[in-house]
Design a protein around this nucleic acid. Structure first.
Ligand SMILES: Nc1ncnc2c1ncn2[C@@H]1O[C@H](COP(=O)(O)O)[C@@H](O)[C@H]1O
Ligand SMILES: Nc1ncnc2c1ncn2[C@@H]1O[C@H](COP(=O)(O)O)[C@@H](O)[C@H]1O
Lengths: 177, 177
DNA sequence: TATTCCGATAGTGAC
DNA sequence: GTCACTATCGGAATGAG
């Protein structure tokens, strides 16, 4: 089996991987990303076989699929917040302020099974190692979940080359003042 | 003083560097290359100031200069053989067979003072570390001493870019059968 | 096409 | 645009009372 199917076990038999799977039901598995790019990094994996085969751009054209996943996205964000707060506290002690979370799909994924990234915005996970990693979450290469469905003329529907070029950009930190 | 003049001390005052200088007289210094690319690697340095300033391509247009150096080249080869035989012996015990020696100048040198490389063909010196090193002695980038004077249309007289491109070639071993 | 140090870049192989 | 490994490539400094 190719590396491209590394997520299959968590889709097929989530019950067999309790140390990785945080939640599962008949629709999704929510797992810890094995190579986290943020302090907390989860993946939401739709279990429906047809959905899992599709690119995010195609799968989330369908409103029913989108609506179904929305609830799980909220749940994933909640899980991420909980996991983050277990290890980290704000210096100012303000527990009302919540860590920002990115919910997105890569416009050109490497793994074949549809997955939604849910990660904290710190970009300082143990496996954040290079420009490609960074840019894959901080540029338009990352399609935010709330951007779906994409407009018909969105280049990320077709132009793989342009998407890939985003990964080669210089590092840029939003809100660096 | 820039690194480009690293050889100056051995030209100006060879008597002060007995551990490096194997031979000197009023015309040349013969020294051990500080970063040998072969098991034995010597440099012949003409001491005449005008000659030392010139590129090999220009200096060896002059027959008198060539003839003067020829004798020292033979001496350098002799010294190289002696040095090599001090450390290495042929498996077949045939002492008639002598180690092959390359006598050449780099078509685009890094150090400013004219120098002739005299080195064994093993290409396995302690400081043979990269493709550039290897190709600088195994391609036309190296102008063999007996090629001088170059023909007027030899690209190595003018085309620095083409010379440099030779250094990027894939490694190739002559007589690898 | 000096050296060393260091970091970015690029190709490979993975069952 | 998986990871991990390796090779390659690229810049900067090199000096000194
Ligand atoms: N075996 C694995 N288990 C869990 N997550 C993985 C595994 N292999 C890769 N990943 C993650 O899966 C994500 C795939 O990214 P992408 O295909 O670009 O959307 C990356 O964040 C990887 O860190
Ligand atoms: N300080 C030094 N003393 C002796 N040889 C040196 C020194 N610095 C560099 N070299 C050698 O000088 C040669 C210069 O090569 P090139 O200028 O390309 O002909 C190389 O073989 C270097 O190893």
């Amino acid at each position: 089996m190719s590396f491209k199917y590394a997520l299959v076990p968590y889709i097929r038999a989530p019950e067999k991987h309790p140390s990785v799977v945080l939640y599962y039901d008949e629709n999704v598995s929510i797992i810890k990303d094995a190579f986290p790019k943020g302090k907390v990094h989860l993946l939401i994996l739709p279990r429906n076989e047809e959905t899992s085969k599709k690119r995010s751009q195609e799968a989330f054209k369908d409103e029913k699929t989108r609506k179904l996943l929305e609830g799980y996205v909220n749940q994933g964000v909640e899980l991420a917040h909980k996991a983050f707060n277990k290890t980290w506290k704000r210096i100012d002690g303000d527990e009302q302020k919540k860590m920002k979370i990115i919910v997105c799909c890569h416009s050109v994924p490497s793994l074949n099974n549809l997955h939604i990234h849910v990660l904290t915005t710190d970009m300082c996970g143990k496996n954040m190692k290079n420009k490609k990693h960074y840019n894959s979450f901080t540029t338009e290469f990352a399609i935010k979940f709330d951007e779906f469905p994409l407009k018909e003329d969105d280049y990320r529907l077709q132009d793989k080359g342009r998407c890939e070029s985003l990964l080669k950009q210089d590092l840029f930190q939003e809100n660096a003042s």
